[in-house]
Amino acid sequence: MKLDLHTYLRPISGDYSPLTPEQAREVERLVGFELPASYTAFASDFGGGGVFQGEATVKTDDGRELAVFTIFGGVALTPSVLEDLKAHPEWQEAGLIPIADDMFNNRFLLECRTGKIHFIEYSEGVSRAFEVAPSFEAFVERVEVVLDE
């Protein structure tokens, strides 16, 4: 079942400022890849990103259930895909775009080369990464939300 993001997200900062073509080109310039059409469509609607209204989780192919706190567009004041990329040149070099996080600031990253979504968990000075979904569309489709009462 496709998740209706308009139902489950609320804007991070006032409204959903759509990602402009100029901002999309800046992200593409930083990572050296064209943005996947599905992510561009999302960011055009939810450019400022959103916080889930309730507890959101995403399931991986191997059965892990990961919390998702915010999902990013390109231009939010906090968090900002552009600011995040500038703070992490290693992501730029690898063609990775931050698309979401959990409550602990761990990141979900879109790998532009393949379209896959990865999760990077930072714990006790060590990071580990693993694949979450084969595409941005699959990531969104796998998100389940239990609404706040």
Rank of each mutant, 00 (worst) to 15 (best):
L82Q: 06
T60G: 15
A100W: 04
L66H: 06
T57P: 04
L109K: 01
A76L: 06
V31S: 01
L66K: 03
P18F: 03
Q23G: 11
P134M: 10
L82R: 05
L9D: 01
P11A: 12
L147Y: 13
A94R: 06
L66A: 07
F42P: 04
W91V: 02
A94G: 02
S13Y: 00
F33G: 03
Y122P: 02
V145R: 02
E121C: 06
T78N: 13
A67N: 08
F136C: 06
V31M: 05
S44L: 08
I99V: 06
P18T: 01
E93H: 11
Y16G: 01
L9V: 01
E141M: 10
E141L: 13
I99L: 03
R25N: 07
S123R: 14
T40H: 14
Y122D: 13
D4R: 02
D101N: 12
F42T: 04
A37L: 08
A37V: 05
L77A: 14
D148V: 10
A41P: 10
L3W: 05
T60L: 14
L96K: 03
E149Y: 09
V81A: 02
T40I: 11
E124A: 15
E83N: 08
E149L: 09
L9Y: 00
E65M: 04
Y122M: 12
I97S: 02
S123A: 12
A37G: 04
E149P: 10
I12F: 09
G125M: 03
E93G: 10
V27T: 09
N105V: 14
T114P: 05
A100S: 09
D15I: 03
F72P: 01
E93M: 10
Y16D: 01
V145K: 02
P79L: 07
I12G: 05
E149C: 10
D148C: 08
L19C: 11
G73C: 00
A43I: 04
F130W: 12
R128A: 15
L5H: 00
R10Y: 08
E137Y: 03
G125T: 05
L30M: 12
F104I: 15
D45M: 05
N105S: 15
A133G: 05
L109I: 04
D101R: 03
E22I: 13
R128G: 13
A138Y: 11
R64V: 09
V146W: 06
D101G: 07
F52P: 00
D45T: 08
D62T: 10
V145H: 02
V51Y: 10
A76I: 07
I12L: 12
W91K: 03
E83F: 08
P11Y: 03
V27Y: 00
A56Y: 04
L147D: 14
S123H: 14
A87L: 03
K59R: 14
F42K: 03
G49A: 12
F72V: 00
G49W: 00
